[in-house]
Structures are given as C-alpha cells and as structure tokens.
C-alpha cells in the first residue's frame, strides 16, 4: 500500500472524527452570536443573547446552586472513592472484589431512579424536605461510583510497598498518606474530583427530584425548553463550553510547564 495515501486517509479520518465530536458544540456557539437563532444564515453577529442571559437573575442563582452541588459532590465523592480504593487495593483481602462491586453498582442504576428513591428516602425516613444539601448527597451516591473507577485505575499502578517502606522508617498511617501516597497519586484524586464535579454540575434528574423549586442550571434550562429553545439557552451552552475549554487549556498549560507532573 502506498505510504502517503495511507497517511492522507488517516488525516481524513481524524478530521471526520473531530467534526463528529465538536460540530454540534461549535454550531451552538455560533448560533449564540446570531440574531436569528432559528435560521442563523447568513450570519448577523450580535451579543444580545449573552447580555440578556447576564441580566436574568434566576440564572445567577441557578449557576450558584449548580456550582455548590458540583463542589460538594466533588469533595464527598473524591473522599469516599479514595478511601474505598485504598481499602480495595492497599488492604487487599479475599472480600476486596465484593467491596469494589458494591461500590460500583450505582453505575448501573439509572440516575432518575436514584433521584426518586433518594427523595423518598430523605422525605419518609429522614423527614428532610428537598434541599441543596440533600441534592448534593444524592448526587454523591452516584458520583462516588464514577470517582472510584477513576481512582482505581490510577491506584492500580501505584506500588503500595512504598507505603510499607515509609512505615518501616517510622511514618504512621496518616503521615504515610500525606508524605508518600498523596504526593504521588494526587492526579487520580484531581481526576475523580473533576469527573464527579461535572457529573453533579450537569445532572438533571437527581438534582431535580431533590431540589423542588430551587433551580440549578440544568433544571432551569430543562424548564425553559418547554417554551421552545429560547436564544439565551444557546448563550448558556456557549458560555459553559467556553468555561470548560478554558479549564482544559489551563490544565494543559500547567502540565506543559511542568507545574503539575503526572508520572
């Protein structure tokens, strides 16, 4: 086979794949800057939708609620996932597989079921009305499973005998974690935090059932959809995508500059 034509095919495939992944997102960003969002051709640029969105107070509250739920879930899920992964891999025992399985099982439960059942549980058993706190806890049950997957994948490559070495040289368990385990494996925990933050931030079903009238970005957007796709939803999607791109660019630059090392 001709080497160069093979190369051309690869480039084409790659371009097609990227178009598939990013086409819809780029389209949304494009539309958010157009006056006519139903048929945005030919292009007529405007910032109107973005300024409209900025003035909608309910979106501010929703953003704040989403960030709170995302952060809370990120912290809880990362903490639980780290502890669970250490139990499974560091203190390996015949029951480790079962322990891991029970932690990962929520992956197979539809989020909407988690939403409904956690609401009923906190209402009936705990007597708690829906709240941000309840929504964070309910999101954490789901996100912990994903976070555990991320942490397990990285911890599986960690040599736990380094912890043994630290203990022989006088480090107590906490000190061992702080001096050895954490500095080497923190990218796993950062990854778990980002994944569970995004899951909770973007979550509709679980948050919706647990929050009632309190808005988050997804529940507000979902509510707005009932009146057709309004232009400010395009602006919202565009801004969130920008934020995510910005975050990844910063992470990438930090990695390149060597401030963060992932070995």
């Amino acid at each position: 086979m001709n080497h160069r034509s093979g190369f051309g095919v690869q480039v084409l495939l790659l371009a097609a794949l990227y178009l598939f992944l990013y086409g819809p997102i780029l389209y949304v960003i494009y539309v958010s800057f157009q006056i006519d969002s139903i048929w945005p051709f030919p292009p007529t640029l405007t910032l109107e939708h973005h300024t409209d969105l900025w003035q909608r107070r309910d979106y501010h509250a929703a953003l704040w609620n989403s960030v709170t739920i995302g952060f809370g879930t990120g912290l809880i899920a990362t903490l639980f996932a780290t502890l669970a992964a250490m139990a499974i891999l560091k203190y390996r025992s015949p029951g480790s597989g079962l322990v891991a399985g029970l932690f990962l099982a929520p992956l197979f439960i539809a989020p909407i079921l988690i939403g409904i059942s956690s609401l009923m549980f906190s209402r009936t058993v705990l007597g708690m009305p829906g709240s941000i706190f309840g929504a964070t806890l309910a999101n954490s049950t789901y996100a912990t499973a994903f976070a555990l997957l991320v942490v397990l994948a990285q911890f599986a490559r960690y040599d736990w005998r380094l912890d043994d070495a630290a203990m022989v040289f006088g480090a107590r368990p906490w000190r061992t974690f702080w001096e050895i385990t954490l500095p080497i494996t923190w990218p796993a925990m950062l990854g778990a935090f980002i994944v569970s933050f995004l899951l909770a931030f973007n979550n509709l079903e679980i948050s919706f059932y647990n929050l009632g009238a309190t808005p988050t970005l997804p529940t507000l957007a979902w509510g707005a959809l009932r009146h057709g796709i309004s232009a400010e939803l395009y602006a919202l999607a565009a801004i969130i995508n920008f934020a995510v791109f910005a975050l990844f660019t910063v992470l990438y630059l930090l990695l390149r500059l060597g401030t963060i090392r992932i070995d």
Partner: peptide, 14 residues
C-alpha cells in the same frame, strides 16, 4: 525502630 534495605529499593520517586 528497624532499618530496612528493600529488594527493589522502594525509593520515594517524588
């Protein structure tokens, strides 16, 4: 209070 030299070193990489 024991010292140990491990078979595959187990130096702390960071």
């Amino acid at each position: 209070g024991i010292g140990m030299v491990f078979q595959d070193f187990l130096l702390f990489p960071h």
